[in-house]
Design a binder for these strands. Sequence first.
DNA 1: CCGGTTGTTCAGCG
DNA 2: GCGCTGAACAACCG
Length: 241
Amino acid sequence: MPEGPKIAVLKELAEPFSRQVVASVAGNFKDKNKLVGQKILGFKTWGKHFLICFKGFTVRVHLMLFGSYLINEESGKTPTLGLTFKKGTLNFYASKIIILEGDLDDIYDWSTDVMSEDWDPKAAKAKLKAIPNTPLYDVLFDQDIFSGVGNIIKNEVLFRTKIHPATKVGDLPTDKLNELLKDLRTYSFEFQAWFRNDELKKHWQAYKQKTCPRDKNPFKEERMGKQKRRTFFCEKCQVFY
DNA sequence: CCGGTTGTTCAGCG
DNA sequence: GCGCTGAACAACCG
């Protein structure tokens, strides 16, 4: 389900519950009693984390690989966490949920989130300098450098910038690195807009595709990186630096 | 029914 | 203590 842009859409859809008081709580979440009667101060996101802010603490929802949510709707299954308001419900299924105590600004570095207004590509570059021998297929999954980036964004952005996924980050020419950093953000917002309109898949150029749309060369598909994730690339137009 | 997956954490080992 | 590996977890689709 999630990559950063989908969580950004969740925040938009949840916004009507901002400033509302939690009337009752359902689900398996063990600290659910702590939420009853509390007013939601607002919602935030950090990469793939969805954050429900209360006074003094925050509920962190992570949808992982299979998680889902329903707004003003029930699936019939027990949610991990289900919030009921005077009007409406917000349900999370198959999610990992924890409570964060204290100030979020002490917990999160917002500048690593490629969709944040605080996104700072210079900070990312400084971190990449320390790991020049790491291939891009691993680098792009590092949530402490590129919060919100997942396997779709990885595949699409490397294709769009014509960079071979096995290129080591230190071997990238400066202008290509800059282009990559820029497109991670650009593509994430395009992803968000497409997902909102339910037309994300139709815009996939590399992910799960068979043929390169640029030169009609068949895509290579390999399991790459520490996480052995599906990687699609064109050996003709994606340059190995 | 089986295999695959837009993700992360942790135990176990050398 | 480190890095690496595999397992574990979750739910839905084709």
